[in-house]
Design a protein around this nucleic acid. Structure first.
Lengths: 206, 206
DNA sequence: ATTATCTATAGATCTATAGATAATGC
DNA sequence: ATTATCTATAGATCTATAGATAATGC
């Protein structure tokens, strides 16, 4: 086991690049800057990853994987549908909260470089099916039983993701415009978490 | 009256720049590219706007103004609160639909260049007060009457904006991943518009 | 005269690679 | 021997400006 401080330069470069890409996106981050912050010369970045694009892709791919995996929740027996859904909303919320820059990275890179969408279509379209199947079955049962209004899994999840992701996409703006300190900002985040659960649960009632 | 085709190069540069900034953001758009598409040499872009930053700011400011003005709706007497709210949701939705790249531009620029938030705080914090006052009064009356659950104007509007903006922030992704053609995509947009109204109205019921 | 447009270029990046040198693993 | 790291540089941008020339408004 190697201590965290004993990390090699390759890992260091990866970590710094991740931080910078999340902060400023692909275009505004230079390999020169990455090298400088990683404490090596710029050539080394290319030695390990050949191109800036490669470096970005390995980070981006890993992040997308993390994002998708969030929706794969463990078994939750003995819970009502509402309770299960609440857990899903909150776990997705916490995932985005732990990676607050991720929505920005995804939106930014897929928007400025649509070619990336193609290369990730396969990866994206693999996992969700597994995840959706269970949720879909549960949802349909609820709708049949008249406990939930007719709504597709797609619409339901898009509502959840929209609320959760947008909060962190605009988080910095609110914090600044409303002049919130760290504690106040955290309080707002916590409040919004409850609000999102409330909105989604209310939105599926018949 | 000058015909639209008789537009000067300054306006042409502005129009092309707007299109490119919306498409790719500030960093990935070069004045060289703007000039090329506008059909002039690159020096002219700087002749009119001195710096790329200036050019961007004039466009960005105008867009922000447009965005904020959407929430200033005309008088709507003889309508229930639900009906008024529905109109607001739909008019915001249509505004974003007509400017589908605007959410991207705002999120992208405020995120990569936080300094911009400062310079726009004043402008942002002017208008909303006027708009919010009316909505807030209406909302509070409804809450007092027990027809609406306790919720702040901020939370309500953030819910609306999140749903509407996020749809267009991720629109291209869905279109590609689900392999939708233009007609199918428009159908989905139309469906989501109704879904957003449904979600928001359900979310404020006591 | 003034304003619009062009050519040319300085100066600052930035990415990627070639080739030298130092560190490490047998 | 192989892998990691460095120095140096080619070649491609990109922004901004200086200075020349063409178009336009009195």
């Amino acid at each position: 086991m190697i201590g965290e401080q004993e990390i090699g330069l390759e890992q260091k470069i990866l970590a710094i690049a991740e931080q910078l890409f999340l902060e400023k996106g692909f275009a505004m981050t230079s390999t020169t800057e990455i090298a400088k912050k990683a404490g090596c010369n710029q050539a080394l970045v290319h030695y390990y990853f050949r191109t800036k694009e490669n470096l970005f892709q390995s980070i981006f791919e890993q992040k997308i994987r993390l994002l998708i995996s969030t929706f794969q929740e463990s078994e939750m027996p003995d819970m009502t549908f509402e309770e299960k859904l609440k857990v899903k909303i909150e776990s997705h919320f916490e995932m985005v909260r732990a990676n607050p820059r991720l929505p920005f990275l995804v939106v930014n890179e897929f928007t400025t470089n649509p070619a990336r969408i193609d290369s990730f279509r396969k990866k994206i379209s693999e996992l969700p099916n597994l995840v959706f199947t269970r949720l879909q079955a549960d949802l349909e049962a609820e709708i049949q039983a008249g406990r939930v209004r007719p709504i597709s899994v797609f619409d339901l999840l898009l509502n959840v993701v929209s609320l959760n992701a947008m909060l962190f996409l605009t988080g910095a703006i609110f914090k600044n415009v409303a002049q919130l300190n760290e504690a106040q900002f955290e309080q707002m985040i916590e409040h919004r978490k409850q609000e999102h659960v409330r909105v989604i649960l209310a939105s599926i009632r018949p």
